[in-house]
Design a protein around this nucleic acid. Sequence first.
DNA 1: CACTTGACCTGTCCGC
DNA 2: TGCGGACAGGTCAAGT
Length: 317
Amino acid sequence: MPELPEVETVRAGLHKLVIGKQIASVVYDTPKSYPNAPADVNQFVIGAKILDVRRRAKVLLIDLSSGHTLVIHLKMTGQLVYIRKLKSSVPSPQSSVKTSDKRLRTDDSALEERFGAGHPNDSLIGQLPDKSTRVTFDFTDGSQLFFNDQRKFGWVKLYPTVEVPNIDFMQKVGPEPLGDDFSPADFAGRLQRRKNTNIKVALLDQTVIAGVGNIYADESLWGAKIHPSTLVKNLSKAQMTKLYQELRYVLALAIEKGGSSNHTYVNAEGKKGSYMSFARVFRRENQACPRCGTIIVKTRVAGRGTHTCPKCQKEPA
DNA sequence: CACTTGACCTGTCCGC
DNA sequence: TGCGGACAGGTCAAGT
């Protein structure tokens, strides 16, 4: 799920929902999900209020009144789901339906039904925590925030707020591609760090540019008519500028659409993203290229599933 | 060094 | 219907 637009969507949703809330208790499954000492969690999280929710690259930063910050990486399958407390908590009739039920996962009308009334996540009351829940934050007003992560790659970590800029990751990560001060020249300059590798690898390298993952790498390369295997050093200045424009375009569009989602994904506000219906190559193999009608192919570049139009994106010799 | 591969996990899908 | 294998939107560590 989460690349820059998805994490930004979660951030914006959380910002609306949890600022000012006070954390009453925290439950987590293993130290892997929350690698701080339990004593630190007790001292700096319990009782603290949420001051701000920020994002850098694909990482979420939740600033607490204790002077500490929760740093959260969702990796492949992480979600942050907020559930408010209902005045009278009536179990949803849907709650008896297992989430493994295919109809619930794929049928939009079922999702509409689930998210129809009140806060979109109200119908999840009683369904969380579930087996994917790694961390649960209980707020003093009875509402809850769940960190769910099927594949257990993600993590939550607590740092003193003033130390966050010094975290190794923060030191190394590249600039925000949507930043006002990020120019085509900056982009071309950063790419020179990886001039001997192919452009897809360079886009996915977080130290070159922050926040690009497999979806938006494929989408932007298609937009710029550049084959993912093209070596960075063989890109013309015009191609780099075009790629810069396309990258900014797809990232901004995806944020506007609430990110990408297939079936079950919902953000903190319980809304689905709709970028996938705008995707032009990603997961559209065997379908027509929207530009020229050629059948889109799926290959493997840099060990990642890669979608291209064989006509628009000429493979280097 | 720079680049590639495997590992981390669980779940789903596809072919036999 | 069951079972093995490949694959999934991310990043590290280890290997070449």
